[in-house]
Simulated assay, not measured.
Amino acid sequence: MITSLSLPHLALADQEALADLFRRGTPGNTARAWERDLAYITAWKLAAFGQPLSWPEDEGVALRFILDHADDLTETHSPARDTAAALVAQGLRRSLACPAPATLDRRVASWRAFHRMKNLASPFDAPLVAQARSRARRAAARPPAPKSDHPITRPVLEDMLDSCDDSRRGRRDRAALMLGWASGGRRRSEIVALNHDDLDLREWAAKGLIRIRLLTTKTTGADVAPRLPLKGRAARAVLDWLSTACIEEGPVFRPVSQADRVLDRRLTPEGLARIVRHPLHIAGYPPGFASAHGLRAGFLTQAALDGAPLQAAMRLSLHRSAAQAQRYYADVELADNPAANLLG
């Protein structure tokens, strides 16, 4: 997506070098989000104004973008509805309903980032536009929807593990689920990004401990890559998978063919999502019971149920915001809170 920064005051070679620096220094998930947002923004302006994007963009266009995404357009008849309908037809927008404030915030943030890449002032920084954006966020405020319908707490995880057989696929699934849960509730992207050399086995013989290096997460980069502990059953499951699959280098988690043959390529985030869905189905849970994010939600929910201090859980989950992590603790039924049993 970052192919050229279009900075006329720089030599072409410098522009190319700067674009390459942006590509190498931008996390993959961020780059993919930028690509989707650029496609949406470009299509929106073409549908709304019949014109391509301008750099810098006009403040009136930025204001119209916010206004078009501040209302439910289902029952209205307006140019904004016509524009939204065109985007729905192109598969770029799900419906005519008002988008979530977080979706608008992300697209605005991407548009601002594109201006920064070109060393241009963003129209979204204009006082009137910024005020309109703030009011739109408040007007469309809604309770945050959970990323997983249910947390995968310890009992649910045990049911999932019981459904994993001793085939290569079953051993892989067992290792991925246990590592993802026990190392702090890892995200899909973090689990599938692991390579063999990210697993430090030097303390295994003496302490039964594997240290996992996470080169890139949503809150950390390679310069401060955390090293998280993995112990007990989870560590043994990972070692069993590595031995069974004869993995000594490269990706830790890989696809397994229908013939139960381990492939060389890296498992995708969607492949990890299937690893979560399939054991839930085999264990008898209803469709859609939990997503891969349920591993993360389940770890924190179980930590709350077990009385683990929030800060201790956050050291493993790597949440930057205590308020965000606290939501999982707040979701625990008050009667199940260990503090309710202090007198016995």
Results as ranks from 00 to 15, higher is better:
residue 16 E to D: 14
residue 182 A to I: 02
residue 142 R to P: 00
residue 111 W to S: 12
residue 299 F to I: 07
residue 56 P to A: 05
residue 326 Q to F: 04
residue 148 S to K: 09
residue 282 I to D: 02
residue 31 A to V: 00
residue 326 Q to S: 09
residue 77 H to Y: 11
residue 249 E to Q: 13
residue 127 P to L: 11
residue 154 R to C: 06
residue 107 R to T: 06
residue 93 R to N: 05
residue 241 W to K: 02
residue 74 T to N: 06
residue 198 D to P: 03
residue 91 G to Q: 00
residue 126 A to C: 08
residue 333 E to P: 03
residue 151 P to S: 03
residue 1 M to L: 13
residue 254 R to H: 04
residue 218 K to G: 12
residue 211 R to W: 15
residue 298 G to Y: 03
residue 298 G to T: 04
residue 268 T to M: 05
residue 101 P to C: 02
residue 116 R to D: 14
residue 109 A to L: 03
residue 19 A to N: 01
residue 152 I to P: 07
residue 157 L to M: 02
residue 184 G to N: 12
residue 222 A to S: 15
residue 115 H to V: 09
residue 162 D to W: 02
residue 246 C to G: 06
residue 200 D to L: 01
residue 334 L to Q: 11
residue 193 A to C: 07
residue 42 T to E: 14
residue 225 A to R: 12
residue 311 Q to I: 13
residue 171 R to G: 01
residue 65 F to L: 15
residue 53 L to T: 10
residue 167 S to V: 00
residue 266 R to G: 08
residue 324 Q to Y: 02
residue 235 A to Y: 01
residue 338 P to G: 04
residue 157 L to P: 08
residue 115 H to I: 06
residue 120 L to A: 06
residue 206 A to Y: 01
residue 45 K to S: 13
residue 64 R to P: 07
residue 212 I to C: 13
residue 50 G to R: 03
residue 125 D to H: 08
residue 340 A to K: 15
residue 299 F to N: 09
residue 301 T to C: 08
residue 27 P to G: 02
residue 123 P to T: 12
residue 52 P to I: 13
residue 55 W to M: 11
residue 17 A to C: 02
residue 101 P to L: 00
residue 185 G to S: 12
residue 292 A to Y: 13
residue 325 A to P: 01
residue 303 A to G: 14
residue 202 R to F: 01
residue 302 Q to W: 01
residue 268 T to P: 04
residue 154 R to N: 06
residue 109 A to R: 03
residue 45 K to G: 12
residue 329 Y to R: 00
residue 183 S to P: 09
residue 248 E to S: 12
residue 54 S to Q: 15
residue 154 R to W: 08
residue 122 S to W: 08
residue 264 D to F: 10
residue 119 N to T: 08
residue 41 I to Y: 09
residue 6 S to E: 14
residue 58 D to P: 05
residue 296 R to S: 09
residue 165 D to C: 05
residue 136 A to P: 00
residue 278 H to Q: 12
residue 296 R to F: 10
residue 96 L to W: 02
residue 124 F to C: 10
residue 188 R to F: 01
residue 89 A to C: 02
residue 118 K to S: 11
residue 275 I to E: 04
residue 101 P to I: 00
residue 183 S to N: 04
residue 254 R to A: 06
